[in-house]
Structures are given as C-alpha cells and as structure tokens.
C-alpha cells in the first residue's frame, strides 16, 4: 500500500475555511443595510434592534465563547450609556462617534476591574457576582443624583451631529445608519477575534479549563481579556441607546435588561456570533407585534418560546441552532467534503 499522506495545504484549507464568509452571512448583511432604503418608516425600531444586537453580541463573546454566564451585563451597558450622555451634556466630547469610543473604553475599564470577580467559581457564583455588580452600579447612579439625575434620569442632553455632519433627526434615519455601521464594524472585529488563536483558546477554556491550562493557555489572562472587550461592546451598545435617545436612565442597569439579553441570546443561539443579532430581531418584532396583538399575554408567549427552545436544544440551551448551522454548511459548496473521500486516503 502506498503511504497515504495528508496534504498540508488541504488541512490548512479545512482549518482556515471556517473563517471564510458564508454566502448566508453576506446575504444577512446586504439585507441589513438594505433596510436603510427599504424600510425608512421602521428606522426607530430598527435602531433598537441594532443596539440590542450589539449588546447581545457582547454577551455572546463571554457566554457563547468563553462560557462565562452573566446576569448583570446591563452594568456595562448602563455605564456606557451614562458616560456617553454625560460627555454630551457637559460638552466634554461633542462629537458622538468619539464620545462613543470613550464610553466603550470606560465600560472596558470597568469590565477589566470586575473581571477578577468572575475568574473563579461556578456558574452560580458568577451569576450572583455579575448580578451584584449591576445592582451596586445602579445604586451608585441612584445616590449621585447631582451627576446622573437620579431616578428622573439624565435629562437635557443635546447631541451634536455625527462626525459634525449628520444630525440625529426625529425620524431616526441618521441614528439608525450610525447604529448599523457601528454594529457592523464591531461585528467584523468580533469575527476576527473568534477566528483567531485567542478566540479558539476561549472556546477551549469553555470546554475544559483544566486541559486548557495543561496545554499552556493562561486561562485567567484570556478570561480577563475577553471580559474587558465584551464590557466595551456592552458600553458602546448603551452609548448608542443614550445618544439616539439623548437620555440615560437608571432602568439601563435593571436586572430585567440583563435577563432579557440572555433570552435574546438563547433565542438566537450562542457561540456563532449571529445568535445575538437574529435573537434581537426576533425578540423586538415579537415584542412589537405580540404586545399589540395580546398585550397582557406577552410574557406568556416569551415563556412558551423559552420552554420550546430548551426542549429543542435539550442538552444545552445555547446550541439549539446547531442543526441549522450544519445545514447551512452543507448548502455551502465551498465547505462540503467531496463524497466518499476521507482525508487520509488522498495524496498530494
């Protein structure tokens, strides 16, 4: 028998192929940007979807990839929102895009500090700790009314035009384009991150931290890094909300916001980046239409959906979409394996 050898090019192709753009992804983003022209009357709700999608993307980075459960992700969302609103109100940073960057960095700093609390412990202790951090921040904002406006929220914020050119108009057109562009840029960055060795190491930690350490992965450093990055994403999502509303409120820190976020990610499926985006779309539209149709039954429908999803997902609620993703892979000719050809049987 001839010695069968694996071809390095082919193996590399298999590996790197996972990072290639899937046709459905291209379709998704073409569709997303097409809404700018197709649904001008829906830009207000689409704006909400865009920042919620970014917020859910942030949770996906820590939960779907690194396996850190959080029920207090609103801490960073609220912190970013207040930072952006305060920067505008006190005319510290007038240009919104720049202020958004600052808000993201501020939330990242907070994420870095609080990351040390989630390094160790079980899912349960992490849930408690993240919940606690959000409560504490909300109370700090509540107590410092001179700065935050307390329970009335931060009023009197005037937004300057984006890049000095585009005003936040009352129909939300420019605001939506702004949110969508920010979402897209940060999505591209997240996509790079998860396809990198760093991203793979996060998945390895989620799978088995003991083994990850045993192959030389500095588990704590990686968790701190992704928690810091994700906090920045959440802060930017909050900043987008504050900027498009010209307002910030204590409700941004609420437990319900963190819990809804988890629901959004469960609806869309965690661990493949699009879950948060799809979940945000489904969640907002369900909320909109079901709430109009049967206002008092909205929690009922959400509850029912949750139960169904968990039943379908069975083993892990975060991966109920896996069969569809495999189907999508099979529809993509570039990823399909040639029939009957096992890798080992071939030669260079």
């Amino acid at each position: 028998m001839l010695l069968a050898r694996l071809s390095q090019d082919e193996v590399t192709g298999r590996f790197v192929g996972r990072a290639h753009w899937h046709p459905l992804e291209v379709l998704f983003w073409v569709g997303a940007f097409a809404t700018i022209w197709l649904f001008p009357g829906k830009h207000l709700i689409l704006t909400e979807i865009a920042w919620l999608a970014l917020f859910a993307l942030s949770l996906d980075l820590i939960l779907g990839y690194a396996g850190i459960v959080s029920l207090g992700h609103a801490a960073f969302f609220g912190f970013g929102a207040y930072t952006a609103a305060l920067l505008a109100k006190h005319e510290i940073v007038n240009e919104p895009a720049l202020a958004l960057v600052v808000a993201g960095l501020a939330a990242s700093a907070l994420g870095f500090v609080s990351s040390f609390l989630v390094l160790r412990g079980t899912d349960l202790t992490r849930i408690m700790v993240t919940l606690g951090v959000a409560f504490v921040l909300r109370e700090i904002a509540n107590q410092n009314g001179w700065l935050t406006g307390g329970a009335d929220g931060l009023q009197g914020v005037t937004m300057q035009p984006i890049l000095g050119l585009y005003r936040f108009d009352m129909f939300g057109h420019n605001g939506y384009v702004y949110c969508l562009v920010v979402l897209f840029i940060l999505f591209l960055l997240a996509r790079r991150i998860v396809n990198s060795p760093f991203g793979l190491s996060l998945q390895s930690i989620k799978n088995n931290p003991l083994r990850a350490a045993a192959i030389g992965v500095n588990v704590n450093a990686r968790l701190i890094a992704i928690y810091t990055i994700a906090a920045g994403y959440a802060g930017i999502a909050g900043g987008l909300l504050a900027q498009t509303q010209a307002f910030a409120s204590l409700a941004y820190f609420d437990f319900e916001r963190s819990a809804d976020l988890l629901l959004v990610l469960v609806i869309g499926g965690a661990g493949y980046l699009y879950g948060g985006l799809i979940g945000a779309i489904v969640f907002k539209f369900m909320h909109d239409y079901l709430a109009v149709l049967t206002p008092q039954y909205w929690p009922f429908w959400i509850g029912l959906l949750l139960v169904v999803l968990v039943l379908v997902g069975r083993e892990r609620i975060t991966s109920w979409t896996a069969p569809f993703r495999r189907l999508a892979d099979r529809l993509d000719w570039r990823r399909a394996r040639p029939p009957g050809a096992s890798a080992e049987g071939r030669q260079r």
């Binding site: 790197v16 190491s201 990686r222």
Partner: peptide, 8 residues
C-alpha cells in the same frame, strides 16, 4: 496564543 487578529 494571544494573537487575536490572524486566523488560526
């Protein structure tokens, strides 16, 4: 391992 930019 901490390269977060290039594809694995």
């Amino acid at each position: 391992g901490h390269d977060w930019w290039r594809v694995t």
